[in-house]
């Protein structure tokens, strides 16, 4: 199934199993969301459990916090990650800290889904990757799936988690495993092994990375769309790279990272978000601390340039397989 279908399936499973799961956001009710991730949920579960909201992201998250504190498990949609900023105060000052400041008297088990990343000519308001704004906040978990299988398992795990979870959906992966070659035909998920999604309930636990492509020469840390880009770059350059799909940025599976870098002795970090103070900086620091004596070369970073996401120059901005390939070769030369 596609990633859209997998996400919809996850919400269907969660809503069927637990009457406390509610889904809402802009255009998510009758219409089923602008990317159709919630299509049919209102018809299936009724308007009190899946509904359209006023266009107010702060209101969406703020009411979700109130509901979560009451005992529901809201799974809300922000139409694009680029629209989340009005809700940032509610996320940072409220959802993230409610457990801590009330000493567990109140908690906020909610999931905030949002499409992220570029590659659809969406310009600066439909392309951003703001994951570092959430990983920097104590009290939040941040998840970025790279395929339909994980998207379903991770979303069910997120909804069942007792803490607030930011669930970033790379929109360029909704319909196929995009590897950065924008000039080539799109492969559908139906032709990819990870488009095979088990029926019914299953979870991919939060905090576990997975080796997506085994290799011995260099470790690539990636998540979301960049997992596919990294694999394409490894294949194009012939570098025996081990590509790790982090899946959850926080909590982070440092063990898997450490085991790989200890073997390869080299590491690069790739993400689509801007470079400076990006999540890559945290990864580089952690690898340096944990694996310094195994490292044979500086840890490289490939990221979006530190500019707003441009419209016309999208493919010059996007850190595609060419740039990742160059970083691989550089890591090998180092």
């Amino acid at each position: 199934m596609t990633m859209i279908e997998a996400i919809r399936d996850a919400m269907t499973v969660a809503m069927t199993r637990d009457a406390n799961v509610v889904v809402f956001g802009e255009d998510v009710g009758y219409f089923g969301g602008v990317f159709r991730c919630t299509q049919g949920l209102q018809q299936k579960f009724g308007a009190a459990r899946c509904f359209d909201t006023p266009i107010n992201e702060s209101g969406i998250v703020g009411t979700a916090i109130g509901m979560a504190a009451y005992g529901l498990r809201p799974c809300v949609e922000i139409q694009f990650a680029d629209y989340v900023y009005p809700a940032y105060d509610q996320i940072v000052s409220e959802a993230a800290r409610l457990r801590y400041r009330s000493n567990g008297d109140f908690t906020a088990p909610l999931t905030i889904r949002m499409p992220t990343g570029g590659g659809i000519f969406g310009g600066q308001t439909h392309s951003q990757s703001p994951e570092a704004l959430f990983t920097h906040v104590a009290g939040l978990k941040t998840v970025v799936p790279s395929n339909p299988h994980d998207a379903k398992g991770l979303l069910i795990a997120a909804i069942e988690d007792d803490d607030p979870v930011i669930f970033l959906e790379p929109k360029r992966l909704y319909n196929g495993p995009f590897d950065g070659h924008h000039d080539r035909p799109v492969t559908p998920w139906s032709k990819h092994a990870l488009g095979e999604v088990p029926e019914g309930h299953f979870t991919v636990p939060l905090g576990r990375a997975v080796v997506r492509r085994p290799g011995a020469a260099v470790t690539v840390l990636a998540y979301g769309t960049m997992v596919h880009v990294a694999i394409a770059a490894a294949e194009a350059t012939g570098v025996d790279a081990e590509v790790i799909d982090l899946r959850t940025l926080l909590p982070l599976d440092l063990e898997t990272i450490q085991a790989s870098v200890a073997r390869t002795g080299r590491c690069i970090v790739v993400h689509e978000a801007t470079l400076t103070s990006g999540f890559g900086a945290e990864l580089v620091a952690l690898v340096q601390e944990a694996c310094f004596y195994s490292l044979e070369a500086p840890i490289g970073r490939v990221a979006g340039w530190d500019t707003p996401y441009p419209h016309a120059q999208e493919w010059d901005y996007f850190p595609g397989p060419k740039r990742v390939g160059e970083a691989l070769l550089e890591a090998m030369a180092g």
């Binding site: 680029d82 310009g123 600066q124 308001t125």
Partner: peptide
């Protein structure tokens, strides 16, 4: 080429840069 189509900006014509956010 930086902005999404129709998000014009024309100070000379009393038209503030459209951000695209609501």
């Amino acid at each position: 080429g930086r902005q999404l189509p129709v998000m014009y900006s024309a100070r000379s014509h009393g038209f503030f840069s459209i951000s695209g956010n609501l």
